[in-house]
């Protein structure tokens, strides 16, 4: 007789693809909220993005509140 049973694998590891995805999300999110000074939008808008600072202004209040140096 056979049956299917659920067991818990208590292996301490993270799949490599998951690690890559999560590490990328971590780096991108921290940079955007904590440090972006026009870099992301400069890919599309060029030098003007450094003057507009859309991401900086959008994240401004959280940047201060979370403890990042802002300006």
């Amino acid at each position: 007789m056979s049956f299917s049973k659920e067991i818990t694998i208590a292996k301490s590891s993270v799949p490599k693809v998951a690690l890559l995805v999560l590490a990328t999300i971590f780096a991108f999110g921290i940079f955007e909220v904590g440090f972006d000074q026009g870099q992301l939008f400069s890919i599309v808008f060029g030098e003007q993005a450094y003057a507009d600072l859309y991401i900086h202004e959008l994240t401004h209040d959280m940047r201060h509140a979370a403890g990042f140096p802002c300006h």
Binding site: G29, I30, V33, T59, H60
Partner: peptide
């Protein structure tokens, strides 16, 4: 800027959560 609190919170939270 105030509206950004929630969006930036979601982005920062997702990043630190990762």
């Amino acid at each position: 800027q105030k509206g950004g609190q929630l969006l930036a919170g979601a982005i920062l939270g997702t990043a630190i959560g990762a």
